[in-house]
Design a binder for these strands. Structure first.
Lengths: 347, 347
DNA sequence: TTGTAAGCGTTATCAC
DNA sequence: GTGATAACGCTTACAA
């Protein structure tokens, strides 16, 4: 044992105990089918006896490939990304791959910096939120040399692969639901206004234009990060501008909840005087009183699928899914059920 | 350039361009004070010109030390841990250290497996939630050879270092607040009942015992994971058992919100007929109608402090904080303000 | 199917 | 303060 040794058993120790060469141990561990049953048994025995654990750094150095999936999200606390990350972890539970998370704080510059940094580690895969990367980032990703999955949006020309849904269509569907429910002066309330929020708002606008009801003064947004209290504040603003506002499509459930509380505070009847539709369908929306209409989105599933796409690519499967639309579902509840309105029917 | 080369510039390329030896480059990058100003400038120039980025795997292999902080949490979506993790990331924003997160799913066995796995990577530090590790895990951690920080609890004999607050005291303070507010039949509503929940419940029990009001039938718990809808269900259970229940201390804000909605649904007046106190003080508690009393907890700060403790240890500072109580704060609001009750005053 | 030799890019060690 | 040398533990390339 050299002076610099870490003291832990190495592949050489295993090889010696098993009476084989180190490379045979290496093969037996990475792909047992490369080694005869006999030797495989010997190796497994020695590994167990020594409690051998491969050194991931040595492995990565020798193979120029880290057993790591890099994940870039704009926020760590937004439940949307928390659920997504949980999906990733659950899909990776066999422990063969590690996760590295980067927080871009909704900044394309920060995203570019992180992509550069992560790519420097030669990850086995890179998963990142959205389709609005800077052109420099796109260039880096196209030359990444590992599977790249964009998530949480839908687009038919991904950099490499993509899984998500169309925020435009989701925003449009939510707004159409309010139209069908009988509301006529439907507002939009949004915070942060990142690219996905923008696309949901574009869907809202399209739906109202098609219904002949669009009015830009019905839109109330702020670059401030979203929160429940902010929902109430934005509703107050919207009502001050349009006294006849009779429904709001909220950019997310936090804002919708804030709107509901503000209505309660002002004794505004929901859904009769004002209808509410949220976005994401957190479990509290069904528990609220009245229960709140929302759009169910596939956050957890997106994480799982993204990992599966990376895995499939790594295992060299031929028939490959390049983009996957997981869709969304409108969940109609009490908050948008005007007594006299016809029941909304999915298309 | 050998056949196996990754193609990226190495420390040798930098050395050659700067006209110095590789080890000088290494030193200039890790600790500029080890190298003369002259050479340092040459090295910096070469690094910039080649866009050199050190290979973290080679570095980790040669030094037996990865620039990684391992973090173990029981859940990725619980906002408590999401805020904590955000604190960790923000404290690490200079990019010298990477984060590896492990999800223990509230299982000590899984925690042990992850500790074993992470320690195998020789991290620069290990941060983990709670003080209820298995004895095997404790043994591993004591021999970890890196700073270990337990978080989210308070205890004066940490394995190594600790930062958090006392859940027992917090539960006790919340309950005492309800007592002082004039409530007499104060229930406890809890889900999951992990060790921290247990300690908050123990604090609840102590407070009621001291007030001569304890009654075990006032406790309603379930091992089911917490959620807003569950809060409503547990309130229904509690009311079925004790019609005279006049307040509830909820194990967390999700449950408290569920309780509030259920009260609204049943037209039970809050705070007059029933008082509510939550735990964690999410921003929605102040937005709710009525606003909900809760206990503010230092989640984000805990993450920041944990990283600072690791850093301080790594930089070999002498005067060392081994444990740090960040405390909590009772945030009294409308949901626990009985009209006739004396105003609660902090001790 | 198994083994040999060489190298992955960096840092520890020791000499100057 | 700077450099030569030899690891660190594993895998690729090639040979048998």
């Amino acid at each position: 044992m050299g002076r610099r040794s870490s003291g832990r058993p190495t592949i050489n120790d295993v090889a010696r105990l098993a009476g084989v060469s180190p490379i045979t141990v290496s093969r037996a561990l990475r792909d047992p089918s490369l080694v005869s049953v006999e030797l495989r048994r010997l190796v497994d025995g020695a590994v167990a006896e020594l409690h051998y654990q491969p050194n991931v750094n040595a492995r990565a150095l020798a193979s120029s490939r880290a057993d790591v999936i890099a994940v870039l999200v704009p926020s760590l606390t937004n439940i949307v990304f928390a659920d997504f990350i949980r999906g990733i972890y659950d899909a990776l539970d066999d422990g063969t791959l590690q996760v590295q998370i980067g927080n871009t704080h909704y900044s394309p510059q920060e995203e570019e910096r992180l992509v550069r940094m992560f790519l420097g580690q030669r990850p086995s895969g890179l998963i990142l939120a959205g389709i609005d990367q800077s052109s420099a980032t796109v260039k880096l990703l196209k030359a990444a040399g590992c599977p790249v999955v964009q998530v949480m949006e839908y687009h038919e020309e991904p950099i490499d692969m993509l899984v998500g849904f169309s925020h435009f269509e989701a925003g449009k569907a939510a707004t159409e639901h309010l139209v069908h429910a009988g509301y006529r002066r439907i507002g939009f309330i949004g915070a942060r206004m990142d690219p996905r929020s923008q696309r949901r708002m574009a869907g809202y606008q399209r739906a109202l234009e098609e219904a002949g009801m669009f009015d830009p003064t019905l839109i109330t947004t702020t670059p401030t990060p979203s929160s429940v209290p902010l929902g109430g504040e934005l509703l107050a603003e919207a009502l001050a501008r349009n006294h006849d506002l009779d429904a709001v499509f909220c950019n997310n459930d936090d804002l919708a909840l804030g709107v509901l509380f503000e209505c309660q505070r002002r004794a505004i009847s929901v859904p009769h005087r004002i209808g509410i539709c949220g976005f994401n369908d957190l479990d509290l929306m069904r528990a609220a009183h009245p229960s709140v209409t929302s759009v169910t989105t596939p956050r957890y599933e997106t994480g799982r699928h993204a990992v599966q796409m990376v895995r499939r690519r790594l295992s060299g499967e031929t028939e490959e899914v390049r983009y996957l639309d997981l869709g969304f579902r409108l969940q109609a509840r009490e908050s948008s059920a005007r007594a006299f309105a016809p029941r909304w029917k999915p298309a």
